[in-house]
Simulated assay, not measured.
Amino acid sequence: MNPTTTHSGEVVGQLVLIEADPIRQRIMHAVAGFLAGYSGTTLEAYRLDLRGWIGWLDNAFLDPFEIERAHIELYARWSESQGRARSTIGRRLSTICGFYKYCAQERIIERDPSAHVRRPKQDYESSTLGLDRNELGAFLVQAGLCGGRDHALACLLALNGLRISEALGANIDNLDVNRGHRTLFIHRKGNKTATIPLSPRTARALDLYIGERLSGLIFVNHDGTGRLDRHASARIVRRLTKAAGIEKRISPHSLRHSFITAAPDAGVPLRDVQEAASHSDPRTMMRYDRGRGSLDRHPTYIVSTFVAGASR
């Protein structure tokens, strides 16, 4: 499937419908309908997952609406042979199963071939490489020496555990003061929003980086003409990691992982860590406490002090 190819095509849901091929047009209509229910990074991830699946079917000369459960499981085995992680394969299968469930509900197909697809067992422990206390301290010291954008981004990722999409999507207008806390309003995964407190170090780093700017995105590219992208963010993190003398291959997500693992070691209750990280399926007590005292109890203050103790 190549959504950029046109032949008297019509754009529907950011996908091109090729009128010269009725079968392909039917597929594209179904994909566009399924994707219409999503937005942001979820939309992009599902689009890539389906593009990979339909491309695999094309190479095998299979009609996407004439497949069996065995074909989906063969695709999973093929993905394993390509060295894909179990978590990646599980996510792709989830997208494929969601797509065929939608097609069955909309009566595009008579039967859902994915109904009983076996998913790969997931590891209970995360395979993401993180930084320990001393490494996290050294990383932040190096970020502080660089200052500016690097320091501000490093603090938000490492001391607040933000997802990179949350940090890059943050706006200057969403910085505020709430009951004595410096705060930042962010958009979370799954169309959620949250107001998070900023440790003094993070607030100071952001103020120094933003300078005289009054509006717009907090993190902008080198010449200030557009948004800082994920690839540039990853390069910043790798550069700081190398400068700090850390040999691990660290990504922006690794800093979120480091925050989540450092917080319990620093004495933060697990419930508060889950709340700060915005993990799915929060417990009832977390919902109850969300509006009361969560800023005072936020792990960013404890983790910031905990890490600073190792970097002196």
Results as ranks from 00 to 15, higher is better:
R119K: 15
R119D: 01
R119E: 02
R119M: 15
P120N: 01
P120G: 02
K121N: 14
K121V: 14
Q122V: 01
Q122S: 13
D123M: 03
D123G: 06
D123I: 00
D123T: 04
D123C: 00
Y124F: 09
Y124G: 13
Y124C: 07
E125G: 01
E125F: 11
E125M: 10
E125V: 12
E125D: 11
E125L: 12
S126V: 02
S126A: 11
S126I: 02
S127T: 13
S127M: 10
S127I: 07
T128R: 10
T128H: 06
T128Q: 12
G130K: 10
G130S: 14
L131D: 05
L131I: 02
L131T: 00
L131Q: 02
D132A: 09
D132Q: 08
R133D: 04
R133C: 10
R133F: 05
N134V: 05
N134Y: 00
N134M: 00
N134R: 08
N134K: 10
E135W: 04
L136Q: 07
L136V: 03
L136P: 00
G137K: 05
G137N: 01
G137R: 03
A138Q: 14
A138D: 13
F139C: 12
F139L: 13
L140P: 05
L140Y: 08
L140E: 08
L140M: 15
L140H: 09
L140I: 14
V141G: 03
V141K: 13
V141C: 10
Q142C: 15
Q142Y: 06
Q142A: 14
Q142S: 14
Q142W: 08
Q142E: 15
Q142K: 15
A143F: 01
A143D: 09
G144E: 15
L145C: 03
L145E: 09
L145F: 04
C146W: 05
C146D: 14
G147D: 12
R149L: 09
R149A: 04
R149K: 11
D150V: 11
A152H: 04
A152P: 01
A152F: 05
A152Y: 07
L153K: 02
L153D: 03
A154I: 02
A154V: 07
A154Y: 06
A154G: 14
